[in-house]
Amino acid sequence: MLVWLVVGINAASGEGEQCTTDACEAGNDVGTLLGTGLVVFFWMAGAVILGIIWMVTNRGARQRREDR
């Protein structure tokens, strides 16, 4: 996910060199922000989903360790 984030930001920053107007640069910045936000959202959603799955599947193992 980190590689995807870095590559996306790097690719978006290179596209701004072709812009000749402020509107083009602003549009590029907004697109970069949306793309970065989407990657971070997927990253966090995946972390939450995997965390919930881990908590549910390890519940019995944690209880057995406490009984020892």
Rank of each mutant, 00 (worst) to 15 (best):
L5T: 05
N28C: 11
N58C: 09
G14L: 14
S13H: 00
G14S: 08
T57M: 09
I9A: 12
I53P: 02
D22V: 14
G8C: 01
W43G: 01
V39Q: 01
Q18W: 00
T36K: 01
V7S: 05
M55S: 14
V30E: 05
L2N: 13
W4I: 15
D67W: 01
G27V: 02
A45P: 00
G35H: 02
A47K: 07
T36P: 03
L33H: 00
V30Y: 07
G27F: 01
R59N: 09
D22N: 11
V56N: 10
I9N: 03
V39M: 04
G8W: 02
A26C: 06
T20A: 06
D29P: 01
G8F: 04
G14W: 14
W54F: 15
T21G: 04
V3Y: 09
V6E: 08
I9F: 13
V56F: 12
I53A: 15
E66S: 13
Q63I: 06
W54K: 15
F42W: 06
T32I: 06
L5V: 08
V40T: 13
T21S: 15
Q63M: 03
V3K: 15
I9G: 00
I52E: 07
R59E: 10
E25M: 09
G35R: 00
G35M: 03
C24A: 13
D29Y: 02
E17L: 12
T32L: 07
G31Y: 00
I52Y: 10
E15F: 05
V40K: 11
I53C: 11
A12D: 08
T20H: 11
G35Q: 01
G31D: 05
G37T: 05
W43V: 09
S13Y: 01
E17G: 05
M1S: 13
D22T: 14
T20E: 14
T20Y: 06
N58S: 15
D29C: 05
M44A: 14
N28I: 05
N58R: 10
T57F: 07
A11T: 08
V40C: 12
S13T: 09
V56L: 15
V48D: 00
L5P: 01
T20V: 12
T36W: 02
V48L: 12
E25Q: 03
L34R: 14
R62M: 13
G37I: 04
A26V: 07
T21N: 11
A45R: 02
R62A: 13
I49C: 09
G51D: 09
G35V: 02
G35E: 00
A47E: 05
W54N: 13
I9P: 00
M1L: 12
M44L: 15
M55I: 07
F42R: 04
C19V: 11
A61F: 11
T36N: 02
M55H: 06
C24R: 08
V48R: 05
A45Y: 04
N10S: 13
E66N: 09
F42C: 09
I49P: 01
E66Y: 12
V56S: 10
W43T: 12
G35L: 02
G37K: 02
